[in-house]
């Protein structure tokens, strides 16, 4: 399955990318994070504390254990600070 991964705020800065394409067989967000961590030292550092990370699957907020089957766009970012 081919997915677009998006990064925002300090995740984007730590990883050094705003987005990347990925071929994955991961079934859940947690499995996907496991794969992302192996891509580079920067990924590993950015994903070291999952409690500080939020995820959206196809632009809807989701839990880390959510299934990602069929997803096209998965975004990772810190807790939101709007308003």
């Amino acid at each position: 399955m081919r997915v677009t991964i998006l990064y925002f705020a300090w995740l984007r800065e730590r990883i050094g990318l705003a987005h990347e394409q990925l071929e994955t067989d991961a079934a859940t967000v947690t499995e996907l994070v496991g794969e992302l961590r192996t891509r580079s030292d920067r990924h590993a550092l950015a994903f070291s504390d999952l409690a500080a990370i939020r995820v959206a699957i196809d632009q809807d907020l989701a839990d880390l254990d959510a299934p990602i089957t069929g997803a096209r766009e998965i975004a990772f970012f810190p807790p939101m600070t709007g308003g």
């Binding site: 959206a56 970012f77 600070t81 709007g82």
Partner: peptide, 13 residues
């Protein structure tokens, strides 16, 4: 206001 502070994807630097 309560919802957009923590459920809308904005980040302030």
């Amino acid at each position: 206001m309560d919802y957009l502070k923590s459920r809308a994807p904005f980040w302030k630097k």
